[in-house]
Write a protein that binds this DNA or RNA. Structure first.
Length: 508
RNA sequence: GGCUCGGUAGCUCAGCGGUAGAGCGGGGGACUCAUAAGCCCUAGGUCGUAGGUUCAAAUCCUACCCGAGUCACCA
């Protein structure tokens, strides 16, 4: 396997006044699996953070009796804790209120202005004060706010703002989409954006003057939150100064987003980058939504089921990570329930994987005092040869489910090998050579599993590694670690507790 | 309403012109190293509905039904 060019992946920055839910966990976990896989092949970097500007934040702060800064400072820790709870390891966490971000935003604004892409204009429209939203005339209902829960009268608002000449980039964007079908995946989102581009783009207001919780502009007013938010992906890399060389090394990267914000990431953001003569994101992937079982109503129990912290408490981060990426193709919506999670946990993780480790090490202990026999080449070494490339390719293409399917083929192969070769009979019959060969295949096969599974289940994969009696952790370069025979003869294994103890359904 | 994606075995999905597949659940069997786990066998679903094209359609076309998304400054 060849080393890859530096890899950079981002999650969206989370809106600070929101509440962490399973969707945030989903994006976070997917990004973590991507970057852990990439780290096994070369330099890799992952970014997450919080989006802290905007009128809603200002209002919420006022309601809480705090200044906006105090307010966001009080909320930031709970977002910073999110990734660690799911065993996700990011290299950086950026807050849009940090000076490094402000500096970058203003530099980008200047660059775009110098290019002639930013001009002063009047931003006006029908505004609903309660919803803080501008509505197009066509959407108004009897001259009132179209939001069914609002229906308040709207007012004509007009403010002098900075505009971005987005229309200028309409044709180049269209050409870029056509030339790079993989720029935005999955297909359905790509089609939607193409439709928008074909309809034509209008210029876009990038500042606000009606409130002041945002990045202040020299001439007055603040940057519009979305304009500011998107820039986090490069401000975290230190653009434009790039004192640490991160921007030069890692940009462009790939963005992992929820499907609802595809337009910002694949139309507005690329246009902003072009305007500043910077490279476009390499790829954008918009994943699906997670719903409750049945999709619709979220009752109290289901509400709990959707609480990622409770799920981690019951099943552990590794099992949740596994479930989210194995249950459905990445990109489509799917539903989650405690029953399904328990099912996957017991079947795939407990029965197939956990029990494989347990039965193998138990036999090694019984027949060989727990010492790994001499390496041998057999069917397993042949089967395993193509696995790293298959897994890596699937992960790179965000086919997490297929990657896990491939890995589970190895789990099944090892389980089958035991049943077919019946080590207990080999032992009774004194066929030591065959027994040794099988036991080695099992141990070495599980060492490969440990390495391959590390990106998906860092904690349990490390537990496998340790029970095999290996030093360190399974986090290592695949090119070095995934060589058959890497497990040394004579290694003293030390079987431990079951990896995934069966979880019984609550008594009805 | 326009556009997009999807509607395949109980569940989650693959197949995308040549006489229906996988995993899980369910049923049966032979074992015992193991978390009563694993292994082997099995499920007969008019592939949303109605037409059409074709020697041949789940797979192409048309209409319709159902679900989801999106239609621009709402993170």
């Amino acid at each position: 396997m060849s080393p890859s060019r530096p890899f950079y992946v981002t999650t969206p920055i989370f809106y600070i006044s929101g509440t962490p839910h399973i969707g945030h966990a989903y994006t976070t976990i997917a990004a973590d699996v991507l970057v852990r896989t990439a780290r096994a092949h070369g330099p890799a970097r992952a970014l997450t953070g919080t989006d802290e500007h905007g009128q809603k934040v200002a209002n919420a702060a006022a309601a809480a009796g705090m200044t906006p800064q105090e307010y966001v400072d009080s909320l930031a820790p709970r977002w910073r804790e999110l990734a660690p709870v799911f065993d996700a390891r990011f290299d950086d966490f950026i807050r849009t209120t940090e000076p490094r971000h402000v500096t970058t935003c203003l530099a980008l604004f200047d660059r775009m202005r110098a290019k002639g892409d930013v001009y002063e204009g009047v931003y006006e429209g029908w505004y609903c004060t309660h919803d803080e939203t501008f509505w197009p005339e066509a959407k108004l209902i009897d001259g009132r706010c179209p939001n069914a829960e609002c229906r308040r009268p709207v007012q004509w608002l007009s403010e002098k703002n900075w505009f971005f000449r987005l229309s200028k980039y309409n044709a180049p964007l269209l050409a870029h989409f056509r030339a790079n079908p993989d720029f935005l995946r999955p297909q359905s989102r790509y089609n939607e954006m193409m439709a928008l581009l074909e309809e034509g783009l209008e210029d876009f207001s990038i500042s606000r003057s009606s409130f002041d919780w945002g990045i202040p502009l020299p001439g007055g007013g603040v940057l519009y939150v979305w304009y500011d938010a998107l820039i986090n992906y490069i401000s975290a890399l230190g653009w434009p100064d790039d004192a640490d060389g991160l921007f030069a090394e890692f940009w462009p990267g790939m963005h992992l987003i929820g499907k609802e914000i595809a337009r910002f990431h694949t139309i507005i953001w690329p246009a902003m980058l072009w305007s500043a003569d910077l490279p476009l994101p390499a790829r954008v992937f918009a994943h699906g939504w997670i719903t409750g079982d049945g999709g619709l109503k979220i009752g109290k129990s289901l509400g709990n089921a959707m609480d990622p912290y409770l799920l981690v408490e019951e099943f552990g981060a590794d099992a949740l990570r596994y479930f989210l990426l194995r249950e459905a193709p990445f990109g489509s919506d799917f539903s989650i329930s405690v029953d399904k999670l328990r099912q996957r946990h017991n079947s795939d993780l407990g029965n197939d994987l956990g029990n494989l480790l347990r039965r193998s090490l138990a036999m090694l202990a019984k027949y060989r005092d727990g010492l790994v026999p001499e390496p041998s080449d057999g069917r397993v070494s042949e089967f395993v040869a193509d696995l790293p490339v298959l897994v890596r390719d699937h992960v790179s293409a965000l086919r997490f489910r297929e990657a896990l399917d491939e890995i589970w083929n190895l789990v099944a192969l090892l389980n089958r090998a035991i049943d077919e070769q019946k080590p207990w009979e080999l032992h009774k019959a004194g066929r030591g050579v065959e027994l040794d060969a099988l036991l080695y295949d099992l141990c070495e096969g599980m060492r490969w599993l440990s390495v391959l599974l590390f990106p998906f289940m860092p904690t349990k994969s490390t537990a496998i590694w340790e029970q095999l009696g290996l030093e360190g952790t399974p986090e290592r370069a695949w090119a070095d670690a995934l060589v058959w025979g890497g497990l040394a003869a004579g290694t003293q294994t030390n079987p431990g507790a079951p990896l995934f103890p069966r979880i019984e359904p609550p008594a009805a």
